[in-house]
């Protein structure tokens, strides 16, 4: 079968994932001129390959609340959470705190790692000594204007 590239084989689809969109590699016709695009293998862009690097460890969640608006996360936004990423300072995380999942930014505050929000009502939370657990790292936010 033409049109299969190694690319698709490595990105194994899961039942929960929409399947990669396959493009048909054909000639313009049986006779006549070959398509001028023939030498440029088309590979229609697929958001999955850009936003979902590790399908088995990627989960989608919905954001609620307004205290991360400063970082571009609004009520009802879709978050793409990749659990395989090692968290680093500056990342936005899903953290488990006292049985509740929270969206926070992992950042330095007064020289030590804190979980921060962008709202003055919620002061940064010192990580050291808290029983906070990492759930996943937010890879991207999808803010839909039309639904």
């Amino acid at each position: 079968m033409p049109g299969q590239s190694a690319h698709f084989i490595s990105a194994l689809p899961l039942t929960s994932q929409p399947l990669p969109y396959l493009t048909f590699l054909g000639r313009a016709g049986f006779s006549g001129f070959p398509s001028p695009a023939q030498d440029y293998e088309p590979c229609t862009l697929d958001l999955n390959t850009r936003l979902v690097k590790n399908p088995t460890a990627t989960f989608y969640v919905t954001a609620t609340g307004d205290s991360m608006e400063g970082w571009g996360i609004f009520e009802g936004d879709l978050l793409i959470v990749d659990r395989s990423i090692e968290p680093r300072l500056g990342h936005i995380l899903i953290a488990m705190l006292e049985g509740e999942a929270l969206i926070k930014r992992y950042a330095l505050y007064r020289g030590s790692p804190h979980l921060c929000s962008s709202h003055p009502n919620y002061p940064p939370l010192l990580l050291e000594g808290s029983d906070c657990q990492l759930w996943g790292v937010v890879r991207a936010v999808v803010h839909e204007y039309l639904r």
């Binding site: 929960s16 919905t62 954001a63 609620t64 205290s67 879709l78 509740e100 929270l102 969206i103 926070k104």
Partner: peptide
């Protein structure tokens, strides 16, 4: 059904209590 239905995703709050309020 957190992983198979768009309208049943896990809700995560930006601050404590946000999910309950929602």
């Amino acid at each position: 059904r957190y992983t198979t239905r768009w309208d049943e995703l896990m809700k995560v709050g930006t601050h404590p209590g946000a999910t309950q309020a929602c």
